[in-house]
């Protein structure tokens, strides 16, 4: 506000109960391997997109699970669907499908459409 020369900062805390996890639930129902990710980062390390942009599939997966969907919505289209992440995942997560389902989910809930 001009009168004060500053405005009240917004919190950056994940408010788990205020967030909605409908995107993560949509993926989890259709691709159960989504649940067994242990956040090792193999997918992001090998990712072509991740090496040139701020795209991190590891991060986006956890953000969806916490209901922090905004950053996912902004970034999920960057994936080129090459499939290398799926190839390297030690837990056998079908990461490529996670990405396609995430895109579907965002389309399905128009408020979040990508």
């Amino acid at each position: 506000m001009d009168r004060f020369g500053f405005s009240i900062s917004k919190g950056r805390q994940i408010d788990y109960d205020a967030n909605s996890r409908h995107i993560a639930e949509f993926i989890s129902e259709r691709e159960p391997s989504f649940r067994v990710c242990i956040e090792c980062g193999c997918c992001s390390a090998t990712c072509t997109t991740g090496n040139f942009t701020s795209f991190s599939l590891r991060e986006l997966q956890i953000l969806m699970k916490r209901g922090e969907n905004e950053k996912v919505r902004e970034n999920i289209k960057k994936c080129m669907l090459c499939g290398k992440c799926t190839l390297v995942c030690p837990r056998g997560v079908n990461t490529r499908n996670v990405v396609t389902l995430a895109r579907q989910a965002f389309q399905k809930f128009p408020a979040n459409a990508v």
Binding site: D17, E59, I62, E68
Partner: peptide
Amino acid sequence: EDTLAGKPLKML
């Protein structure tokens, strides 16, 4: 903190 999301987290 959700150290993998890199953010503090509050939950009930």
